[in-house]
């Protein structure tokens, strides 16, 4: 950048209010940090917006905000999480994700080295997924007005085939498939929180699922009725949502639900239930019974679905309850949580 010779100190520098003030400092931050990390032909034109070609069929759009604490966790950081999460929200419609936007709200004093790490991992994850971050925004707020860094994103994808997935398409007798073990992300995050820090080998499952979705659609086509990524509130919240949208109930087999022993043990210690714990690289699919085996086989052949399992079915139920046959031999209802899952004292 001509006329501004002092290099951005990416080792020891901090974000200050000038980085969001619209002047040279901001331009330098954008060009030497964000553009370098995301590097693509759209950003290179330095416009306030990007134009892209529109395919035939339908476009899919989603938006999401990331306020995760801590910002760095085993298996990723807020940046990789933002890219994966946005891609997954697009992909759950069955669409192929194409473009992302990212808006950064940065707290004054935030280390530039951390910002670079986060932006670099966003760029790397986007490239690996074959999507482009083509629009962005940077705001700096005074110390205390944000918790380090917030990222909000938009994702756009293309729905080339003739069907779309929606929760109201589930019908009685459909199978419920999950793509792998539940609760990894939530436990990885909790292990680094200040008030409960503990040591675990569990890392976040944060991953972009669109390629797994593609092989599932190739195997199941319109037989795949619903797909959703069970993030906040875990599998329990996702299935309760689908139950309400479809007017159906669920009957699950607890023994079939994959949970890693370390996740189960951590939840046991903290008094939590893995089916309420967040995931960032898993999906739930409601699939027509005659195609469920084919879809499951396709999932298991994909690295992100190797632990996939058929965990139950949809049933007619006016109450729209999610019921589980426990491994112990009884039954129970899995309800929404009334707020955040809190450890029980007794």
């Amino acid at each position: 950048m001509s006329g501004y010779h002092r290099k951005l100190d990416l080792e020891n520098g901090r974000v200050d209010l000038s980085h969001g003030a619209g002047g040279r400092a901001m331009a330098q931050l954008i060009s030497s940090l964000f553009h370098r990390a995301f590097g693509n032909e759209w950003l290179a034109r330095c416009n306030d917006q990007s134009a892209f070609d529109v395919e035939t069929g339908k476009l899919v759009m989603t938006t999401d905000g990331y306020v995760v604490s801590p910002l760095f966790f085993p298996g990723g950081n807020i940046g990789s999480l933002a890219v994966h999460g946005t891609i997954n929200d697009v992909a759950m419609s069955g669409a192929r994700p194409l473009y992302l936007s990212a808006s950064f709200i940065i707290e004054e004093g935030f280390p530039l080295s951390d910002l670079k790490t986060i932006a670099d991992s966003m760029g790397a994850e986007a490239r690996a997924a074959g999507v482009y971050i083509i629009a962005g925004d940077t705001k700096v707020v005074e110390r205390g007005k944000a918790d380090g860094l917030f990222i909000s994103t938009t994702g756009i994808g293309a729905l080339a085939h003739g069907f779309d997935l929606s929760a109201d398409k589930a019908i009685v007798g459909d199978r419920v498939l999950v793509s792998g073990s539940l609760g990894d992300h939530g436990v990885a995050i909790m292990s680094k929180r200040q008030n409960v820090a503990f040591q675990t080998e569990i890392v976040s499952d944060s991953a972009a699922l669109h390629n797994l979705v593609a092989v599932m659609i190739a195997a199941g086509g319109a037989g795949i009725r619903v797909m959703r990524d069970p993030t906040r509130g875990g599998l329990a919240a996702t299935l309760n949502e689908i139950a309400h949208q479809s007017g159906l109930g669920f009957r699950l087999q607890e023994a079939a639900i994959p949970v890693k022993p370390a996740v189960a043990a951590t939840c046991e210690l903290l008094g939590l239930d893995p089916i309420h714990v967040a995931n960032e690289g898993k999906l739930v699919a409601i699939v027509a019974p005659n195609l469920a085996d084919a879809v499951l086989t396709a999932m298991k052949a994909h690295p992100l679905g190797c632990d996939a399992a058929d965990i139950g079915e949809t049933v007619a139920d006016d109450h729209k309850f999610v019921q589980i046959a426990t491994s112990f031999g009884g039954g129970r209802i899995v309800d929404w949580l009334s707020g955040e899952q809190l450890p029980r004292i007794c």
Partner: peptide, 24 residues
């Protein structure tokens, strides 16, 4: 009892009454 669905394993004439033992 609720987590494992224990009441489903009991005969109808054996009933559990949930006591006050939750400090909250």
């Amino acid at each position: 009892i609720s987590r494992y669905g224990l009441e489903d394993l009991l005969p109808a004439n054996v009933r559990m009454i949930h006591g006050p033992g939750c400090p909250v």
